[in-house]
Amino acid sequence: MPSETTQPSETTTAPALTMNDVRSLEAGLDALQTAPGTTTRRRSVWPVLAPLLATALLIGAWQLFVLAGIKPTYIVPSPLDVLHQAVEAWGRGDIQQALVTSLERGIVGFAVAVLVATPIGILVARVRWVRLSFGPIITGLQVLPSVAWVPAAILWFGLTDTTAYFVILMGAIPSIINGLVAGVDQVPPLFRRVGQVLGANPWEAVRHIILPAALPGYLAGLKQGWAFSWRSLMAAEIIAVGGKIGFGLGSMLQQGREIQDMSVVLVAILLILAVGIGVELLVFAPLERRLLRRRGLAAETSR
């Protein structure tokens, strides 16, 4: 301010901003503050190539070990022996049968586990006395290896598919419940208050705010639940062979052991591994990526 007589009226009566001024100002600021190029997602070949190279390296090391002749090939067969065995088993239809049997059990069992665990999870997360009384038991069940249920299941259900399903459920349900509870616990209190302010009743709050907000934790629980059920299914199939129980990948492992054919055992192991990787890559990874990208949490969508 130069002197005391500089038109004081100008600042006071200057018609501040007309509506159009505000609009254009805001539009300019919005453009400046939202950086362009948020959609430049560079596709790289490395995420695909690197694991393939690593796999090739491991197979190479395996081959070298066999060539060195440290162990006889009936104990450590070469990668090519295993491949031959796989082709033969495919020709007999063993692989298809084992894959279909195990995958069917895994998927159906997991789906039932999700249906059972989700409502229980919501109850445990939202109802105080349920959490107080059943929370620790569920956590305990999650720690208990579900293989421990196999003998009991055989006594109860015999050598039937029910035994396999029971073990899957006992493996997956506690993980899914705990994942959902953890997800609900991590919902920012601010979101709950948004629900209150917007006048949501308890059911609407769960449906529109709590559950969507808990989705990342829920998905983590599903992922772990799947891993647990797949593992326990394999254990159940190894132990419970014969009777009316179908021929799965675990049965194939057990069969390889009985006929003392290491290449059959390795084929089964590789198949079990392949299913695990396949489910992760085809189901959980895309779900997770979509979830994170939509919420602006993925690494690529940096601003």
Binding site: Q33, T34, T38, R295, G296, L297
Partner: peptide
């Protein structure tokens, strides 16, 4: 014009 934008695509003021 911003109705279809995800929240993380908006600036603090928006």
């Amino acid at each position: 014009g911003a109705g279809d934008k995800a929240v993380h695509e908006l600036s603090g003021g928006m």
